[in-house]
Each structure stands twice: as structure tokens, then as C-alpha cells.
Design a protein around this nucleic acid. Sequence first.
RNA 1: GCGGGGGUGGCUGAGCCUGGCCAAAAGCGGCGGACUUAAGAUCCGCUCCUGUAGAGGUUCGAGGGUUCGAAUCCCUUCCCCCGCACCA
Length: 919
Amino acid sequence: MERYTTPTTPPVYKQMSQEGYDHTAVEKRWQEAWADASVYRTPDDVDDPTYVLGMYPYPSGKLHMGHVRNYTITDAYARYRRMRGDDVLHPMGWDAFGLPAENAAKERDTNPRDWTFDCIDTMRGQMRSMGFGYDWDREIATCTPDYYEWNQWLFRRFHEEGLAEQRDAEVNWCPDCETVLADEQVEGEDERCWRCDHLVEQRELEQWFLSITEYADELLDCIDDLDGWPDSVRQMQRNWIGRQEGTRLTFAVSGDGVDESVEAFTTRADTAFGATFFALAPDHPITEELVAADDDVREFVEEVADPEGDEPNGVATGLTATNPVTGAELPVFVADFVLSDVGTGALMGVPGHDDRDHAFAEKTGVDVVPVVAPEPEGYDPETDAVPDAPDVSEAAFTDDGVAVNSGDYSGLRSADARAAITADTDGAALTTQYRLRDWGISRQRYWGTPIPVVHCHDDCGSVLVPEADLPVELPEFINTTGNPLDAAEEWKATTCPECGGPATRETDTMDTFVDSSWYFLRYVSPDLADAPFDPDRADDWMPVDQYVGGIEHAVMHLLYSRFVTKFLADAEGLTTREPFTNLLAQGMVQLDGEKMSKSVGNVVSPQRIVDEYGADTARLFMMQAAQPERDFDWSEEGVRSTYRFITRLTRLVEEYANAGGSTVTDADPDPAVAAYVDDEIDAAVAVATEEYDDLTFNVALREAQGLVGTLRNYVDYAAPADPAVLNRGLSVAVRLLAPVTPHVAEELYETLETDAEPGETPAFAVDADWPTSDADRGTAEMRRRLVENTREDVRQIVDVAGIEDPSAIDVVIAPDWKYDALEIAIASDADNLIGELMQESHIREEGDAAAAYGQDLQAEREALSETLPGDDEYEALRAAAWLIEREFDAPVSVTRAADAADDVVRKAEPGRPAIDITE
RNA sequence: GCGGGGGUGGCUGAGCCUGGCCAAAAGCGGCGGACUUAAGAUCCGCUCCUGUAGAGGUUCGAGGGUUCGAAUCCCUUCCCCCGCACCA
């Protein structure tokens, strides 16, 4: 067969060979062109743009594959929305504060600021080389005073609203480094400093807290409405907040000179009659009194208690606690499984109905009393007798059931017993407990936002720095073992804003999660000098429509951002209360099933891939490899194959463009084949568009790549190709790929468009219109299935019948009356289908054939499904006939029933044409 | 333990919400063919079993159930991954 010939090679592809196209030249060219034309700029006056955001990175200095995947997802989606005609806001910035910069500065004898900005410059360059289309005019770096001033402003606002306070807290403290360590920086069982290997201590320090717990209920309840978020993240946030409804009971603890009321929290007030002991945490205030007086308790607390261990350990104190529900006197233990930060640090022990209490009772010999029985089938508390108590000597019964051995409450269901006991008991009250703690934001580090507070040497205490004096800027970095801010004597010395007397600056800086809890608002108006964000524009532009980032931020960053957004809504009148409408937690890029990590040494450098194959290949490979939220394995073979695909595409376009002026050949294009290609183009658009909307790029790209394959086949085997159809097909394919392979798309789009409109300045593919089609996906898929099934049937016949070399293949569409009959059968619910069919005269006229087909339909009654109408089947198969011809090298005829022999027609059914092969 | 997500053909992995067109997409691997001096690349097929005209049989962790019909819905059970957890 004739091939589309290539008379000359255009300049850009001079180097193109089997190895591929010149990606370096193409990518550089378009990156410059985009920058020159500011195509990614989002003007301030656009109306409600689609806000697409990737979690901003810590500027480590090197882009890794995780970044590339994250930002390719947002970039592809942003580009897609842009082509659909949306205004798009797609900014980028830097989470630029943090300890690594401090450590790097010490190692390299520089300072965190210079080091960080170097890293930012490098990474910005790498992002540009990936072709990410950001509005760099909106770039932010949290380590600039312009930005962190507003962290300080935010702190002030929290303080003014009574939601920031300073209090003592236990922290990890490395005496050698003289700094606080985050939990993640404490290593090993014996808790050593990650930097100097010194043993870490717990220390009580004055720390600043933001009262996120004030928002616990709203943060929890609103999770239900975040239906654009993955369930996993929503569940993790629910767990983290950990709201529990229960009862607060007041126990009178006495003996040995102690006589106090102690509160205990329980979710199972219905088991109060089964309480046989009372337990205090090793660091409970009463325990601390006892430690001084009682050697056994002291020894237990200091030597035996092992809160990390699995065994419940405890020591009897000789005190008794009065059960407020029953009046019973319970022995009081100090036990290591009681945690001071859970509930109230004291609990009533119910061994009959709690596994851990049961284990403790076995160990200490306290009584085990059953007070809840499993609810009998059909139990009615009003009329039925109280069930027998279960045997709990071996194991606790922990489910809800029916109260037994519980005085007046016996017979009540657990839930009712809880309510009644809570209502009847003096000092008892329903309360809600949370696992969520207030957000400790103090860090004893240099490279962060200074907390805008001074400590007055006289009597003013801790005083906020007035708004007019913000920002409190960081002093020069001092290379020291402790907190450099502590060593900055000049900086520390200041005056009290209230009394004007001498004062010392707060040397704590803020957790960097403060920076990231509102950065998405700063992009709205990044240069605004007198407010963190422009309120009107923020109301218009927020929330973020599509947020993309790693699952590791499921709780911290995403919860803090929700908290701060809600706070700003209440305190500043921001109209949005949830910052991120849709959230995508992208999967990991792995190598041999393992997370890429430096320590394992299995890191693939994006830079190398870009150098070798180009950014487009890297992007396309990643996006087609898997759904964005799934992990996938990096595969060099896959990358190469993606590269070859792009090379083939460029070659196809180039061949078309070169032949474009002289497509006149002797023969006319076959309209049937052109129609097939046209249909495939429409189908590809219909499918890919839906999938881009869902961010399932892998499916969309499969469609785009499939279309390219179809076009190649068309050019290769059905020459001459119809230039109009081919042009449309190529243009569509290029645009369907453009969000993911922007550079090569520009190059090819230019080739195609310039060719079509000589002399006109080519528009950017970035700004091109997304292709449209009237095709309905369902219909298109039905058509594809028909074609594929028919080809498959031909193959089977040839194979099974052992036909060596078919000389002709006839495909015959079923007669119209069968389509009618099928339609009637699907719609009908009559018992006697045949009778119903025979009411149609044109079916009845078919006699035995109609009866036979009617019986077939009757037999498969429930399984019948719609097919394409007969005319459409005819057209679809005619258009696809070339595929069969090409495969079997035999002429294929597609005919209507009326034009075919009766004995062949008989086998034809809607959706399944008769096939007659002549050997 | 609690909560969430899974177990599909040689492998990876879609389908399951909305049961029938599902022996089950796609990719990889394997086999055959075309092209090539050859290799590579590319292209066309095949890849559970049986079958000389598009057929039949046995499959979607295991067991049961619902249904005319189940990879898909329900129940039980086993296993894997993730998050939380001596949480009162």
C-alpha cells in the first residue's frame, strides 16, 4: 500500500531519528515563548477563576519525583480548565521556613536566608523546565518579612479574640543542642536526639497555643459536607479530633489524709454498678502527693510504671473512692495505663465490661462483676424479665446490652441506663471529650516567624507588639548551639509597648504550619501591603477548587488550614468557611514497589529524565501510568515507550504538514473510511473530556493515544487520507494531549495551524479551544463494541473453520423488522411476547422467521439490551470494513438485508450481523 | 481492638456504586506473523480448556444466600494494606 511520503524534513526535526525528537530545543523554545507572552498571568480583575493548587513545597533545593507528579496533576488540570474557557488561578510558592535550612546553614557556614533563596532559585528553574504554567507574579516565599508579617498579624488577631495563650507544656528537650525537638526528631526506643544522639528530656516550658479546640465541633461536623475529599482523609481527621460523648462522674477519694473530689470520664456510665476499682495516672496531682508520703507508690511511679508497655501495671494506694452512683467504696490504684492527657487522668475500672480493666483485675485480684447482659432476641424492657448476668470471669463483655445487677436500672438497655444514671447521680453530667489538643505553635528555633510578643521587665507581663510595629523581623543569623534568637542580645532588648520600660523579645518562633495554614489566601493578593489578603477578591476567588498534595498532610496541614479559614471567617468576615472544595491525595511514585528514598538509594532524578527524554515524556508517562491517587512503579521501559509515542506523533504531524500542500493524488479518499476516522475522533473527544473532568488522566490519555494510533493506521493503510479529516484528527489529538505534554503540543499545534492559515500569527495551544463533539459516549462505545465484536467473529470463523485465505467477506445487517421486534420485546411486559409481536403486520408477514426470532427473544427476555438502530449499524460497519479488509486481505462487503441472500440474512440479528466468508 | 481500603487471568491492574453486551479493558511478559541483510524499532494477531462457521465448558480469596441471571447485591469466614489506639 501507498504510504504518505515525506519529501523534506523541517528544520526543527533535523536531528530527529530513530532515537526521537529534539525535546530540548522544543521545550526551551516554548518555555521562552510562554514567558515572553505572560500566558499564565491571572489578572486581578478576573471573575471567580478556577483555583487549582498544589501544596507548596519546602525548598530543599531539589525537585523530586513526588513533586513532579503532584505538580503535573495540577498543571494538567489547570491547562484543561483553561482550554475549556475558564479563567484559572494556578500559583506557586515556597514553604520556606524550617529547621533544615538552619542545619544546612551551620554545615555550610552560611545563613538560612541565603541558603533558602539559593534553593528556591534552583527549584524555580526546575519547575520552569518541567513546563509548569504558574503565574509567577503571584509567587510567595514565607520567609520574607512581607509574608511573615501576616503570620504575626494573624497571631495578634487570635490573641485579640482570646484564642492565643501562653501556658506551660511538656516538650522534648535536647540539653546538648539546647532546643526543643519535635516528636519526629526524637529517635529510637530510648529517645535520643536525631542530631547529637544525646538523651532527650521532657521539660516544662512556657509555650504559645492557638485554641483550635474551640473549633473542634465545627471542624468535625463539617467533615460530613466535604464530599470532594477522599474518605480516608475525612476519616483520619475525624479520628484525630476524636470527639466522644460520655459522662463526668465525681468520686470522693479519701484516706491517709487525702480527702478530695476527683472527676472521672466514662463513655459507659451504664456499667457504674460494675466498677470495682478506681485508678489514677502516675502523674495525677493526688498521685504526686502520695509519692511524697508512700514508698510503694513512689517506687511504682519511678521504677515500675511503664506507660509504653502492653501490661497494665498498678499499685494499691490504701485510699478509697466512693462510687457516686452506688455509694460503694472502691480501692484506689495508681496505674500506668491511665494517661493524664486522656479524659481526666482518672477512671473507674469495670473489669466485667472492659478488656483492659479485666486484665488488670486478673493481675491484682479485684472483683469482676457482670452488670450488662447481651440483649435477648425480641427483648422488651417494659414487659420482659431482666436477663441473666453473663459469665465474665474469663473475658469482659464489652458490647452494649441490658443492665443487670444494677439496682433500679436493671433491665434498661445500655443507652437508656447511661442516660438515667447520668441524670440521677449527684455531680454527674453529660460531657464531650476530644482527642484534639490545642495547637502548640512555639518553636525554639531561628528560621521561623518571630512570635510578636515582648516580655516587660516591669509589671506588664507578656505584651503584644502593636500592629504598627509589625513585622518583627528576624535578626542576623548567629551560628550557635542553642536558639540563635536567644543569642541575639541586641535584637532581644527592646522596650515595652505599654509602659515604655525595658523589655525582652519573645524568642520563640512559630511552627511553620502556621505559614501554610493560610498561604492559599495570600496568592489572591500577594503584594498587598496593608492586609494579608484582599477581602473582596478572596470572597470571589476562594475556596480553592482543586487542591492536590500528599496524604501525609491529611491531618496537620489540612486541619490547621480549615481551622484558620474558619477563624478568618468569624474574625474577619471571610465568606468561605472551608478552604478546599476538592482534594486529591496523590499516590507515591515508587521504584520496585518501594517508596523512592535517598537512604534506600532508589531515587530517579527528574533532571536526568528531562535531559534524556524531555519534560513532556516525564509528564505523560506519569499521568498515563496510573490514576492520580494510586501508587505506581517508575519504569524506565515505560518512559522509553512514552518517548517513542511522542516521537511517532511528531513524525505523523510532520509528515502530514509536509504533504499538506500536495495531497492531490490520483485516487479520491474513501468516504466510508473517513467517516470511521471521524467517528473515532468524536468518540475520543467525548471520552477524554469526561475523564479530564474527573482527573482520571490515565483514561483520557489512553483515548488520546488510541486516536493517534487510529490516525497512523489511517494514513498508512487507507491512503489517500482525507486531508480535512486527518487535519481535524491531528488537531484534536494534539489538543487532547496538550494539558499533559504542553511543549510538544505547542510545536505541533503551530505546525498544524500555521499550515492551515498561512501568514497568521499562530495562537498558543495553551489558549486553544478544547475540542468538542456531539458524540454521546454511550453510543460511541456501542459502535466500537459492534465493530470489535464483528471483527472478533470474523477471526473466530476463519480460525475455527480453518479458512486459509478468504477471498471475500460479506457482512449483512439484520432486516428492519428484527430491530422493531427487539424494540417491542424490550419495552413489552406482556406474558405472551410472540402474540404481541404478531400484532404488528410487518412482523407477522415474516411468518416462520418472525416466530423463530420471537421465540429467541422470549427465551432471552430478561437479558435483552438496546442496540444501535439498523441504519447506524450499517453505517458503522461500512466505515469499519477497511479494518477487516486490511486484516484479512480480502474484499469486504457490508449490505442491508434486502440486498443479501436469504440463507445468510437469517442469521443476522440486531447488534450481530450475519457473516459469510468465501474461501 | 476501632476505623478505612483491598483480595480479579503468568504479572501489574480496570470493572463492582448503576447485576445481563464480562472469559473480564489496558499494559507488561510469552508465542506466531509482517517489515529488515540482521538486530532494534514499528505494525498485525494469539496468549483458561475444548471446538473444521461466529459454539460450549470452568473461572474473578473461601463458603452460603438473593435473582431468570452475580466478578458485580446480601451474610459468614480467611488473608493483606493504611490510619488511630493501654482513649476510660
